[in-house]
């Protein structure tokens, strides 16, 4: 007969990464230990490898055509639904940010801005094409028009600070136009990204549109840079990573953009907007004949 426990033992969660709409461990079975602000053990987080990245790219590529073909209105509503999911679980996100060192007021502000930012981009989904595209008055009998199209799979390397708002702010403009994303979460505070993955999973966002990896930048940045199917990189990165990403990108003429936003600046309205969508679209110009 066993002794009566003093209180109930909590069931701890096994953090997993979100790839192709499923929660998985790293294929390598590697993890790294994450501690909370007090230094206590929190959980083992998947330490994703280049193969996990490859798998995520494949999932993103598979989801790409379908996501790009959704109507802009539909993408807008799905992004809005995602904002609803984040808002509904904002307490959990705030608690997690606080647990890893954020001041409560900052955490609350960050999550609120994150929700608002998602809505901002939800609203852009059916408008950016009107502003980035054009009808061009060419000197011949052609109807000539330019439309923005998604680039394909975009690699996102999120900042460590703010770990969640940075990630949301970088993913949202990329998927608003129909790209799919493989994102590497903050290395120092990865857990909020795991939570975000759970919200993505319960939103209407199709699996594979956003894939969230956790792990070490040093291990994964080179693969982000050189994987030819990643057509663009959006990174928050210091000079060394910037150079490494640009060097690797050359082989497949990848588009490389850096967030240019740091720390508390992510809270500002200047950290969002049309040109961040514009950075991840291709412009296609069509010449259509006019004749009877």
């Amino acid at each position: 007969m066993s002794a009566q426990p003093k209180s109930r033992i909590p069931v701890t969660k096994t953090p997993k990464v979100y790839i192709g709409g499923a929660f998985v461990r790293s294929e390598s079975a590697r993890t790294f230990k994450v501690t909370d602000r007090s230094g206590a053990f929190f959980a083992n987080i998947p330490q994703c490898t280049r193969k996990d990245l490859r798998n995520a790219v494949e999932a993103a590529a598979k989801a790409g055509p379908g996501w790009a073909r959704r109507t802009p209105y539909n993408r807008a509503q799905i992004l809005y639904r995602l904002a609803e999911m984040i808002e509904a679980r904002s307490g959990e996100l705030v608690a997690s940010l606080v647990q890893f060192g954020a001041r409560r007021a900052d955490a609350e502000k960050g999550v609120a801005v994150g929700v608002d930012r998602m809505i901002h981009y939800a609203g852009w989904a059916d408008k950016y094409a009107q502003l980035l595209g054009s009808v061009n008055p060419v000197s011949s009998a052609h109807f000539n028009f330019t439309v923005p199209e998604p680039m394909g799979v975009v690699g996102v390397v999120a900042p460590d600070s703010p770990p969640l708002l940075g990630l949301i702010s970088m993913i949202a403009p990329v998927i608003a136009s129909g790209n799919t994303v493989v994102a590497l979460a903050s290395e120092t505070v990865p857990y909020p990204a795991v939570l975000l993955g759970e919200m993505l999973a319960t939103s209407d966002l199709p699996g594979g549109v956003v894939n969230l990896l956790t792990g070490f930048r040093k291990e994964l940045v080179p693969t982000f840079a050189t994987h030819a199917q990643i057509r663009a990189i959006y990174a928050s990165a210091g000079p060394d990573d910037r150079k490494a990403l640009r060097l690797g990108a050359a082989a497949s003429v990848k588009r490389v953009r850096f967030s240019g936003t740091e720390g508390a600046a992510w809270l500002n309205d200047a950290a969002q907007g049309l040109e961040r969508i514009g950075d991840f679209v291709e412009l296609k110009t069509t010449w259509h004949p006019i004749g009877a």
Partner: peptide
Amino acid sequence: LLDEVGSVDQVGIE
């Protein structure tokens, strides 16, 4: 008939 003889593109012929 058009199917049989083929079409002409106005811009192209000009």
